[in-house]
Design a protein around this nucleic acid. Structure first.
Length: 205
DNA sequence: TATCTGATTTCCT
DNA sequence: GGAAATCAGATAG
């Protein structure tokens, strides 16, 4: 790796500020099988202060999203669509419940292990191209909900340079939370591993 | 190559 | 009981 650790204090800010700073960072997860490292290329910010209808925390704390209300720097893993697990990094001070959804990344280390976990991926580019795929590639499950990405078996490394960043409407957020009113999706400009699911399922009216 | 639809569990109302 | 921060496979062009 060679990089320095990601500054945990950055996560005390609002998710909308944290999200672009996470782009390009390296997230490593070690298991008995080995370790996989992903360079984050796409993220989404979710606010939990009641201003964001797309957030799981919009209606207040529930057993599922309780981790979002915890201190910054935890992982929030949730299950959706009956078969997929997605992972967020919790931001902002305890009580405000904002988080950054990790939407896509590039596997930069442990590629072979990631391939075993993602047998349906046709090429290495698809290994972590999408929120649920990224979760699988890293070997994360619901059991990792509440984990600390700054402690073993995790490692969060700051990016070395300043990537070109684009932003736009969030994906997959239905109802009032979608659309141009909340341009809180951030990605590394022109990166091939940015997810492609943004065509159909446009914000319904 | 681009677009569309079914799958399937968890949590919340 | 229904919706959900999605994915992979099938079908059409």
């Amino acid at each position: 790796m060679g990089g320095r650790p990601f500054d945990r204090r950055v996560l005390a800010r609002d998710a909308v500020e944290v999200a672009p700073r996470l782009l390009g960072s390296l997230l490593t997860h070690r298991t008995t099988e080995g370790s996989v490292t992903v360079r984050l290329t796409e993220v989404e910010a979710y606010r939990g202060d009641g201003q964001d209808p797309g957030s799981h925390a919009f209606r207040g704390m529930t057993p599922r999203n309780a981790v979002m209300f915890d201190e910054p720097g935890h992982l929030y893993a949730y299950f959706t669509y009956g078969m997929h697990t997605c992972v967020n990094v919790v931001c902002s001070p305890a009580g405000s419940a904002s988080a950054v959804l990790l939407r896509a990344g590039e596997v930069v280390s442990g590629v072979e292990l990631a391939r075993e976990r993602r047998t349906s991926a046709r090429n290495d580019r698809d290994l972590a191209r999408g929120p649920a795929r990224l979760t699988v590639a890293l070997g994360l499950t619901l059991a990792d909900n509440g984990s600390d990405p700054f402690a073993a078996p995790f490692e969060l490394t700051a990016r070395s340079g300043q990537p070109a960043i684009s932003s736009g409407p969030r994906v997959g957020v239905s109802g009032a939370g979608g659309g141009a009113a909340y341009p809180w999706r951030f990605w590394v400009t022109d990166d091939p591993t940015v997810s492609i699911y943004r065509r159909h399922r446009a914000a319904s009216d």
